[in-house]
Design a protein around this nucleic acid. Structure first.
Lengths: 230, 230
DNA sequence: TAGATTGTTAATCGATTAACAATC
DNA sequence: TAGATTGTTAATCGATTAACAATC
């Protein structure tokens, strides 16, 4: 295998999608696939799939394709899903609650046993087996359990200070849903979830489509006018 | 102004971010900015900001920069936020509920007055002033109100059939949170929100960082061993 | 006017695709 | 063996950046 020092960013961003797709195929009982099949499912070119996967290792067998199990294990190990690290949810409003209730953190390689909030109404309850603790207890919890990642689902107004506090407690990654562009040391990994961007994109596409249509209609009208003048 | 026929995909994907950033600056009372300032805030190069914005029009003034209000209006019009179209939420589980409760649909250019679910417990209630109707009433509602976009927050198992039904009712865009790769006609716009991808990415980064660290330590150990042998 | 900053062109850089030898 | 499909190289395509004339 040729050693490739740096995995391009564009390839990296597709890694989770490969893993999810293969995971789903695996769950559906598929045991074998090919760059062609994967490409079709994911809307990519077959050569790109081969090129991409080759950055992570040699998972295929010439003349055969890819064994789903091998591929899943290989990519899973690279991502790190087999060494779960501890995660906490900070902010149990609707979004935090929805994540606690519906999201399969374990599948992504995380263990979760606590969430934090300021509201007296919710502190002390359990959501989907997970204890909701007071934010006052955060520092103690961190000292004892050393969570690696925090899901940040607090209001915008307290996003930065909460992030600072988490980082001071040794948290190394933030899954940031607040929409606030956090200023943190480079040693901390931040993934910003800005899902409203895609709704604006949808708005744009529809607007564009409507305008293109209208322009085309105007052009046709103009043409008919010209022809009738001839 | 030079006419640029096709806006590159990479530029398009940044459009919502520009709009959000400028919107926030506007809300903070900022009245003037520059490609330099925008670039710093968004982590881009100043020349890229100018290049990008030039695809959408001439918003700047040489020697001055950009007027925030003009820029916000200009981009807003291109996206279509000033002609709100009707949106519905289909599936009022935790995620749908969280969106209804917290999300400012109006700011993204949408009007919303109804959500749909199958659960008898929730049908008939209101969430954040919005009526939750029975899914049985969907077709009637669509015939009367012609929603343009549907937020799809139903369980995976019914994602495709629900999408088909919405498309049959004339819905033209889907904001798909189900994680299912929907098969729909090309005339329908779909934005898939796969936020779990970014959590896997976070998992990967942490794993990578740990491994790099360990590798480096091993190298240093080896070096010390060699030096002591000399 | 002098200083600042745009919009645009051209050069560089990175990502995707096509082609094919290697080999199961 | 013949057919299939990989991993990799090289060619193409697209995106980013640097440089600068235009001009407020």
């Amino acid at each position: 295998m040729k050693i490739k020092l740096e995995v391009p960013n564009a390839v990296l961003r597709r890694l989770p999608r490969y893993y999810c797709e293969i995971n789903e195929m695996s769950n559906n009982g598929v045991v074998r696939t090919s760059s062609e099949i994967l490409a079709t499912r994911m809307g990519l070119a077959a050569s790109q799939v081969r090129q991409d996967l080759s950055y992570f290792g040699e998972f295929g067998l010439k003349g055969y394709g890819y064994n789903i199990y091998e591929l899943k294990r290989g990519l899973g190990r690279i991502i790190g899903v087999y060494r779960p690290s501890i995660l906490i949810v900070v902010g149990v409003g609707h979004l935090g609650h929805a994540l606690l209730q519906n999201f399969n953190f374990y599948q992504e390689g995380f263990l979760i046993d606590a969430a934090f909030d300021v509201s007296a109404e919710i502190v002390g309850t359990k959501v989907n087996e997970i204890d909701v603790l007071s934010l006052d207890a955060l520092d103690d919890y961190c000292r004892e359990n050393h969570p690696t990642v925090a899901v940040l689902t607090v209001p915008r107004s307290v996003a930065q200070e909460t992030a600072d506090r988490l980082v001071a407690q040794g948290v190394r990654g933030l899954w940031n849903f607040t929409g606030v562009a956090l200023r943190l040391p480079d040693s901390v990994f931040v993934e910003n979830v800005r899902f409203s961007d895609s709704l604006l994109m949808l708005r744009y596409r529809i607007t564009k489509h409507d305008e293109d249509l209208r322009r085309q209609q105007l052009r046709m009208q103009e043409q008919r006018r010209k022809e009738s003048l001839k």
